[in-house]
Structure formats: C-alpha cells, structure tokens
Simulated scan of single mutants.
Amino acid sequence: MRLFLLPLLAFAATACAATPVDVATPAPARPTVQVSPATTAEQAGLVDVATLAPDIRVEMRYAGSDNFTGAVVPGYEARKCLLLEPAAEALAKVQADLRSQDLSLTIFDCYRPVRAVHAFVDWAHHLSDQRTKAEHYPNVDKSTLLGPYIAETSGHSRGATVDLGIIRCKQRYDEALCDPLDMGADFDLFDPRANTDSPAITEAQRANRQLLLDAMKQRGFVNYPMEWWHFTFKPEPTPTTAYDVPVK
C-alpha cells in the first residue's frame, strides 16, 4: 500500500500547484438561438433577393411538390428567396459576377421558416412514407436521415443561408435557353455523393462544383461540406436569432 501511496500524494501536490495555464479550459458553449417575435418579413428585416438581382432564377423547391417531402412545405406560400439584407446584397454580387460569363445562379432555398423545419422533422419520423425514396435517398434508410441530413434546427431559419446551383445560358437573360451545370448529384440528394468533395464524381462535375465554391467564397459565403449546394454568409447578421414568418 505505501509503495503506491507516496507517488499518488506527490501527483496530487503537483496538480494542486499547477498554474491556470496548465488547466484545460472548457470549450465555450454554443449560443442559444431564440425565435424572433417578428410576424412579417419586413419586421424580421428579410428582403426579396429578386429586388436586388431581377435576373436570378428562383425555384424555391419547398414552395412546390418537387422536394424530398413530395408536398408544399408549411411556411412557403410564394416562390421568393428571402434573406437578411447583408446576405441578400452579397448574393446579388455573386449573380453580377457570374452574369459576365453568361452564367446565373439558380436558387433552391433561402430563408426557411422554423415551422418548415418542424415539418421536415415530422416527415422524417413518418417512416412509412417512402414516396420520394428513389429520387432523394435511394441508398440511405429513411430512419437514418434525422441528424446527418435533416436537422432539428436549421441555419436557414437565421436568414443568411442559401441552397443554390449554377445554370449556363446560351443567350443572356433568356431563361428558356439556360441549362444547369452538372454537379454530379441533384439538390437534396441524401447521399455521400452530394458531399462537396465526393470522390465519386467526374472531373468535369468537380470543376463545376469548384466554380460555384469560388464564386460564393469571393462574396463571403462558406460551404457546408456535406452538401455542395449549401452556403452560409459569414459573419451571420443574426447568429442567435431564428425567424418563423411565412414566405409570401
């Protein structure tokens, strides 16, 4: 017993005498996000990106049935891309940068109401609904989507995150003559192939993703590595505030 007690006491004394520099500092807690009481886009400070970049293509997939839920998502009453003003202005600059190359952004989603996020979570819990499996999660079991692919809280609700791709136009400003660049995976494909740096895509597809990455990075947007289409403007204007006003 004594042979082990003396080293233990010595260790305890050394630990007590350690300076604060030697003591590990806990990582700071992530700030809590609160839902704003705003009831309109104007009150929330959300602006329509189309007012800043009229030629941007706005699809807003969740305002229709062409999305992984197979239905219009609650909170989307119009096909409008709403963002907080700093993010909207930065996105308009990206569009201007691409315009000179006969390219254009195509928007899949922008600000997302909190109620829409709740609808996504509810859909993920309904495992019997497999209508969109072949298109959106062919190689992944629906029971595994919540967490890795569908978040219970979303940065989109803070008004500075956008999902988008690029289209190339044969004639500038004529949307009918524009085709999407091949990114190797469609928007909202729940699959490792959608990871920005996926090894499963071709060199041409990788080059298209890099084109989007470079264009967005130049104007302050940071990519989410699991989704080639997902970008957040940094620094976020309201990092601790989410919004639940409808898109209309």
Rank of each mutant, 00 (worst) to 15 (best):
G147C: 05
P148T: 10
P148G: 06
P148S: 06
Y149F: 14
Y149V: 04
Y149A: 09
I150E: 02
I150W: 07
T153M: 02
S157D: 05
S157H: 02
R158N: 06
G159T: 07
G159R: 07
G159K: 09
A160Y: 02
A160N: 13
T161S: 12
T161H: 08
D163K: 08
D163Y: 10
L164D: 11
L164F: 12
L164E: 11
G165W: 08
I166Q: 03
I166M: 05
I167F: 11
R168T: 13
C169G: 11
C169R: 10
K170N: 13
K170A: 15
K170V: 04
Q171I: 14
R172N: 14
Y173E: 13
D174R: 13
D174T: 08
D174L: 13
E175D: 12
E175I: 04
A176H: 10
A176V: 05
A176W: 01
L177T: 11
L177H: 07
L177V: 04
L177Q: 12
L177C: 07
C178S: 13
D179P: 00
P180Y: 07
L181N: 04
L181Q: 05
D182A: 07
M183Q: 03
G184C: 03
G184R: 00
G184L: 00
G184F: 01
A185F: 02
A185H: 00
A185Q: 02
A185I: 01
D188Y: 01
D188G: 02
D188N: 09
L189V: 04
P192R: 02
P192W: 05
R193H: 06
R193N: 07
R193I: 15
T196M: 09
T196S: 13
T196F: 15
D197G: 03
D197Y: 15
S198D: 00
S198M: 00
P199R: 01
A200F: 04
A200T: 09
I201C: 01
I201P: 00
I201W: 02
I201Y: 00
T202Q: 00
T202K: 00
E203I: 00
E203K: 02
E203L: 01
R206E: 11
R206N: 09
A207P: 04
A207D: 01
A207C: 02
R209V: 04
R209H: 07
Q210F: 06
Q210H: 08
L211C: 03
L211Y: 04
L211W: 05
L212F: 05
L213E: 09
L213D: 05
L213C: 08
L213Y: 07
A215G: 10
A215I: 12
M216G: 03
M216T: 07
K217N: 15
K217A: 15
K217V: 06
K217R: 13
Q218T: 10
Q218L: 07
Q218A: 15
R219K: 14
R219A: 03
F221P: 14
F221A: 11
F221D: 08
V222W: 07
V222Y: 10
N223G: 05
Y224G: 05
Y224V: 13
Y224S: 09
P225C: 04
P225Y: 01
P225K: 04
P225T: 09
M226Q: 12
M226R: 13
E227V: 06
E227S: 13
W228H: 15
W228A: 13
W229H: 15
